[in-house]
Design a protein around this nucleic acid. Structure first.
Lengths: 230, 230
DNA sequence: CGGACTTTTGAAGTAATTCAAGGGGAGTGG
DNA sequence: CCACTCCCCTTGAATTACTTCAAAAGTCCG
């Protein structure tokens, strides 16, 4: 049965951890399923933050663009993660764009609907605090890195994070399980595709990574953790 | 009376916006007042995240330090803001250090106590979501800036943010109302005190800012918003 | 098999750091 | 009240990590 299947899936997710069957049923009832093809945009920077989405499968990318057209990748979103947290936090417009990078399935709620859900079931609200809290913490780590570390190390740590979030074990190492260009990596760590290309070439020579067109396999994670100096 | 005074103060704060008198009383009852002198540390990076604090008056600074000793200022905390959000989000250790930069008064709750407060009063939980959400958003803005903008612009925007958060109107312009060294500014925007010093000197010559020892007054905010190029 | 995108690699340029040295202010203690 | 000391700030010069510019070589897809 479709409905109970959704409810099972919801109960697995951080946001609904420990929620009562009743709360889950309510959540399921208020939510709408949505399918997206790779490349489609879920919403765009500046759109009204009318709803929020839970990723059930697939992968999406959250980006932000400056007034002069420079883009930054805020993060990739995988199963169990939330897209459009703004609606949850009471913001009025989406601060960034979210685009599917693989075919994806989501469940969406209206901002008002979800806020009501949180009021009626405080478990969901406290879970939401934990979920955003984790993301905030992640952001702090990146900020620290971006402020203090050299490019090479930033690229390394970015790849490690991606491998951890979306890594697939293979014979050669941990493969990042979605298409990822040099440009994408650059936009995640505040550098240029040229620098990323050079760095990856050097690492490939040392057998640390193995990469192709929009594809990266991390072979020796240790080497990326290690200090490049001394 | 002391208690009702505290309750009044709490009711003014974002975190307790719209909370019932009962919830406020409970919050007040579970909380402990704390006074801090300028320079004292509230907690240090790596400490167990046993409690969280609401700033009632004064100002504190949240920093993070890398393994090789480089420091970054995550943010300054003023009245109404939360120090130690980690306890709220379920983390086990504080990711950074919080230090008073002015004499300050706080109210503190145990992590468990506050989580119970959120469960019993979902208003508080939904407020917490909004509060952290705002901070997360702020972080995104800084990340974008740090990744894409030149130092000069970053320094400018950092000063504007500080002026907005902690500005005091004076005859000469908006004065940042707590001691702020060149080094501090540098640690907020990922540069060195030398570069900050040079930039401020140049701006002082143009009458855009007016600064002294650990003191900055923004005279022409417009000039800092403006694009330094073309 | 043409065409669009992605990647590579060299060479030149530059923004900002690092290195280095000296000059104030504010508080302290004689 | 003056001298001493500790920070904090300033400013030049040298260095460098990274970008920008430029061009060519792959690679995928219809």
């Amino acid at each position: 049965m479709e409905y109970s299947h959704d409810i099972d899936a919801l109960s697995q997710v951080d946001l609904f951890q420990g929620a009562s069957p009743e709360a889950l049923r309510e959540a399921q009832g208020a939510g709408l399923r949505k399918r997206m093809a790779a490349g489609e945009a879920l919403f765009r920077q500046g759109d009204a933050a009318a709803s929020l989405f839970l990723v059930m499968s697939g992968r999406l990318r959250a980006t932000q663009t400056t007034s002069d057209g420079q883009q930054v990748i805020i993060r990739y979103l995988g199963p169990g993660e939330i897209a459009g947290y703004t609606a949850l936090a009471g913001g009025d417009v989406h601060p960034g764009t979210v685009t599917a990078v693989d075919d994806s399935q989501l469940i969406g709620w209206s901002a008002a609907g979800f806020r009501q859900l949180m009021s009626r079931h405080s478990v969901i609200a406290t879970n939401a605090v934990a979920v955003i809290g984790r993301r905030y913490h992640e952001m702090q780590v990146r900020l620290l890195e971006l402020s203090t570390a050299r490019v090479e190390r930033r690229i390394g740590h970015t790849l490690l994070r991606l491998a951890h979030q979306a890594g697939r074990r293979t014979a050669r190492g941990i493969e990042i399980a979605f298409p990822l260009s040099r440009q994408d990596v650059a936009e995640m760590c505040g550098t240029t595709l040229h620098t990323v290309s050079r760095t990856l070439s050097a690492w490939e020579e040392q057998g640390i990574v193995d990469c192709g067109r929009r594809r990266v396999v991390v072979c020796k994670p240790q080497a990326l953790i290690a200090d490049p100096d001394e």
